[in-house]
């Protein structure tokens, strides 16, 4: 204890009249490294990610190749977009179960419209808009009628999934030239690293979300609502508008995700994306966002998606394992992270 005392006087700002609360050694290190404690869960996810990379690299040849890692982004671009939208909702303390079904609806609509000869320039924005509209309806249900987000988005999920089957029960292949050209576009950055249009879109979405959350009043209000709706209201923040808007953001992301999925699979099928909302939620939670709202980062959610993707990759590399092992590992990991978060929150109070 005595050894710590002189250090404290160097870190403290001039003239501390109020003693700092006692710090644990770990937290003292974090302070030394200038890591805000709010980033700690994200740092945890990053460590897990690095760990998986090391294990994978040690066990399998070519695991750490640029091709594999680039594919990680390519194969998960739609999930990244979904997770970004989900982050907004979970930050306010809500949940969005509709995104998987909305993704399917958007993909099926895209395939159907293109098949009917509607030009791609119309179809692309239209299907994203479908997501926004469903998000708006859910948001209004949650805010105006005070329906539990769980129930409102569950209704949205059934509605969207049902619409898929009304439009087309079977898979529709996409052959529109413009669309295929956009989907097939790619570029090589730094030698072996391939980026498709989907990856570019997903990264732009992440950057945009980061800006929205941290540099606009809308984003700050999202965090404040997660910290307590009544408090946010007493601070004079536009709670009502923001609560509706987060579902619009999530719906829009789901619409966009559907588009990316259609590009990825070159088709639209009404049974795609079943339970994908749960993957998105898992990614957000593994990325360090509290399900109760208020804390979390969109970059954490991206890391969460990458962790999920890497586990999938490892199972594929292993070859002999059933793909269901992915689910088991993800389940275990989820449990670990939720318990970890619980411990972190308990230590705070």
């Amino acid at each position: 204890m005595a050894a710590v005392a002189p250090e404290q006087s160097t870190t403290g700002s001039p003239g501390p009249s109020r003693p700092r609360p006692q710090e644990s050694r770990l937290r003292a290190i974090a302070r030394r490294l200038r890591i805000d404690r709010r980033y700690m869960p994200v740092v945890g996810t990053f460590v897990v990610l690095a760990l998986i990379l090391v294990i994978g690299g040690a066990r399998y040849e070519n695991f750490l190749s640029a091709g594999v890692l680039a594919n990680l982004f390519i194969n998960n671009s739609f999930l990244i977009v979904l997770a970004v939208g989900m982050t907004f909702v979970i930050l306010t303390g809500g949940i969005d179960l509709s995104v998987g079904a909305v993704l399917a609806l958007s993909a099926v609509s895209a395939a159907y419209l293109l098949d009917a000869g509607v030009p791609a320039a119309v179809v692309l924005p239209a299907v994203v808009l479908i997501g926004s509209v469903i998000g708006l309806l859910i948001g209004l249900m949650v805010h105006v009628f005070d329906v539990q987000p769980f129930i409102a988005t569950l209704a949205g999920m059934f509605f969207a999934r049902g619409l898929c089957f009304v439009i087309a029960p079977e898979s529709i292949p996409i052959t529109d030239e413009t669309f295929v050209a956009i989907a097939g576009w790619d570029t090589w950055v730094g030698g072996q690293w391939r980026m498709t249009s989907s990856v570019v879109v997903s990264l732009v979405v992440v950057a945009l979300a980061f800006f929205l959350l941290h540099y606009t009043q809308f984003g700050r209000t999202v965090y404040a609502i997660g910290g307590g709706e009544q408090s946010a209201r007493l601070m004079g923040l536009p709670v009502a508008r923001t609560k509706v808007l987060v579902y619009v953001v999530s719906g829009t992301c789901a619409g966009l995700g559907g588009l990316l999925f259609a590009m990825y699979s070159r088709s639209g099928y009404s049974l795609t994306g079943v339970a994908m909302e749960l993957d998105a939620i898992a990614a957000v939670v593994i990325g360090g966002t509290l399900l109760t709202g208020g804390t979390g980062f969109v970059l954490g959610s991206v890391l969460g998606v990458l962790v999920l993707g890497l586990i999938q990759t490892i199972i594929t590399f292993e070859g002999t394992l059933s793909s269901w092992w992915t689910k088991i590992v993800i389940g275990a990991l989820l449990l670990v992270f939720v318990v970890l978060q619980r411990v972190l929150t308990l230590r705070r109070t």
């Binding site: 700050r220 965090y223 404040a224 997660g226 910290g227 408090s231 601070m235």
Partner: peptide
């Protein structure tokens, strides 16, 4: 209390 527990001191003072 009408502040947001997870936000920083500066954010709480300036939000809005």
């Amino acid at each position: 209390s009408h502040l947001s527990p997870h936000l920083s001191v500066a954010e709480n003072i300036m939000i809005g």
